[in-house]
Design a protein around this nucleic acid. Structure first.
Lengths: 130, 130
DNA sequence: CGATTGAACTTTACATGGCAAAGTCTAGCA
DNA sequence: TGCTAGACTTTGCCATGTAAAGTTCAATCG
């Protein structure tokens, strides 16, 4: 949990390289989180509702997630209608978890200094004020 | 902590409306997190290094954060060079905190179902499998 | 003392990418 | 055999992130 990330102010300390662009997008983050909680997969319309997305929107993002091999899409015919089932791939689940861990560190960073800002007389770290 | 967010699968459950676009961008998230930990503010170059950004990049994002009233920018002349000091505004700090709380719930959601996926016999929530 | 370098930003231009509106395709129904 | 409805896909526009080029000013060099 404590890599070199708790060092005071090293260069790149807040670069958050691990924030995978493909995952970090709001809509896709919602999609992946939904899927993470539904290992059996979700059909297109349920996913659409859970994430409050439009058809076109969801379609596009699924395409992107698919190309990145984060999810897999299964087509079939449930009660005489096309049904699209979406699931996380194992690799996708792993990449998502990695991403979430970075997210955790962002939250930790953010909450570490902030809430005590009114009572703690803070000393300036490495900055030379002149 | 438990709004209606722990309800099984209500529509919009994973929409994450609170993920403010202005804040959610990777680079700006880094900038804001840096600033959250440095209430006295940071100068342009330190911020640049902490976030591993290029000059132009940082400049652009600061502009955006400024227009959104999340940060304030002070110009001056420290040792015969222009110095730009950047700080979170009080409102900015609040909005950032709000955002971080949403982020926390994303992490919670993501980790809630996922890590036990090998030993916990999971029961399907609200989905009707047919 | 005019030219040049270097620091510290700003501006511009391009290219990616998100989003919504329009389009496709199949099945049932009148 | 049109027509409507559902389930997506495709297209096109516009916002936005990024890198490269530009600007400004102080100090230094010839």
């Amino acid at each position: 949990m404590a890599k070199n990330k708790n060092l005071p102010d090293s260069p790149g300390r807040y670069a958050y390289d691990g924030l995978d662009r493909v995952i970090h997008e709001k809509a896709r983050l919602g999609i992946l989180t939904s899927l993470a909680g539904h290992p059996q997969g979700l059909v297109f319309n349920d996913l659409k509702d859970l994430c409050s997305l439009t058809d076109g929107n969801l379609s596009r993002h699924l395409q992107i997630l698919c190309e990145a091999s984060l999810v897999e899409v299964w087509k079939s015919y449930g009660n005489n209608r096309p049904q699209t089932l979406v699931r996380l791939t194992p690799a996708g689940r792993q990449r998502f978890l990695d991403y979430v861990h970075v997210l955790e560190s962002v939250v930790t960073d953010a909450l570490a200094m902030t809430p005590a800002s009114n009572d703690k007389p803070r000393l300036l770290p490495g900055l030379t004020p002149q």
